[in-house]
């Protein structure tokens, strides 16, 4: 009995500790959610819920054109993934299976990721201005695709290295070309990896601020730029900013749910033992 009692006591202690840790992590986002639902004048109040309103969201979506910026962000993030993913898949597969460029080429691909973004944004701006791509959604899609490409290539390279080469060999002796083995066997088998890479690329593009700030204009802003613009010289409209943050985080919460599912899902099970 004493053992059972002791274990119950230690369980309670463990759970209290875990709850305290959870509060440390969850409290800030919860406070942001609470602030987004409180009228602006009471936003800094210390009481938990001094009032309730949806005005902050309505104002954001109507007066501040957040709907447009939201759409821009969705189009840019999705577009950049759609453009980058096929190239990343082919490059990652080439690195994983062939001696393409050796190790040097693998690291060369990552070179752009090693530079601070600010070192890249100005040359990019110069190129975009010369080609008329500034202040345009397709321009930003291209820029983000270029930023995502090395990152997605590396993720997919790791994934393809985990696909048993026997599958491709089987396809090639069955009559497929190397491309056919990639397209008909490797791509379907790697769908969870491709989906995970796609979601990660989406998150990367969705959160990007610097390139969006420099390359977009008033009508092509994305959510991070629009959020920043809520901080005016007259001060920060904290309730509106909070509502904007909640809106901005929403797709990421959904995306992270997907990424978990895809990464955990092992489609290759059963193909080889």
């Amino acid at each position: 009995m004493s053992t059972a009692f002791g274990s119950t006591r230690s369980n309670i202690g463990l759970h209290v500790g875990l709850m305290a840790m959870c509060l440390v992590i969850v409290l800030p986002p919860l406070w942001v959610l609470r602030t987004s639902l409180v009228p602006e004048p009471q936003a800094y109040s210390t009481s938990v819920m001094p009032g309730f309103t949806l005005d902050n969201y309505i104002a954001l979506l109507t007066r501040n054109k957040f709907g447009v910026f939201y759409l821009n962000s969705v189009v840019v993030a999705l577009g950049s993934v759609v453009v980058a993913l096929p190239f990343a898949a082919m490059t990652g597969y080439a690195f994983a299976r062939f001696r393409t460029g050796g190790r040097f080429a693998r690291f060369l691909v990552l070179a752009t990721q090693m530079l601070p973004p600010v070192a890249l944004v100005l040359p990019t701006f110069a190129i975009f201005r010369a080609t008329g791509l500034t202040n345009s959604v397709p321009g930003l899609i291209l820029a983000y695709a270029a930023i995502n490409l090395p990152f997605l290539t590396w993720i997919l390279m790791g994934f393809f290295e985990g696909v048993p080469i026997d599958l491709e060999w089987a396809a090639m002796t069955d009559g497929a070309t190397a491309w056919g083995a990639f397209w008909r066997i490797v791509v379907p088998v790697s769908l969870p990896g491709l989906a995970a890479a796609g979601v990660l690329g989406f998150i990367l593009s969705w959160n990007e601020f610097l390139f969006a700030l420099v390359l977009t204009g008033p009508s092509t802003q994305t959510i991070p730029v629009a959020l920043a613009s809520l901080q005016s010289s007259n001060g920060v409209q904290i309730a509106k900013v909070s509502a904007g943050v909640v809106l901005a985080v929403l797709p990421l919460v959904i995306a992270s749910r997907f990424i978990q599912r895809f990464i955990v899902q092992g489609l290759t099970f059963g193909s080889v033992k």
């Binding site: 048993p164 599958l167 089987a170 088998v189 769908l191 489609l267 290759t268 059963g270 193909s271 080889v272």
Partner: peptide, 9 residues
């Protein structure tokens, strides 16, 4: 193949 290499999809 030893691993059978069946196409899982």
């Amino acid at each position: 193949f030893q691993s059978y290499a069946l196409y899982p999809h």
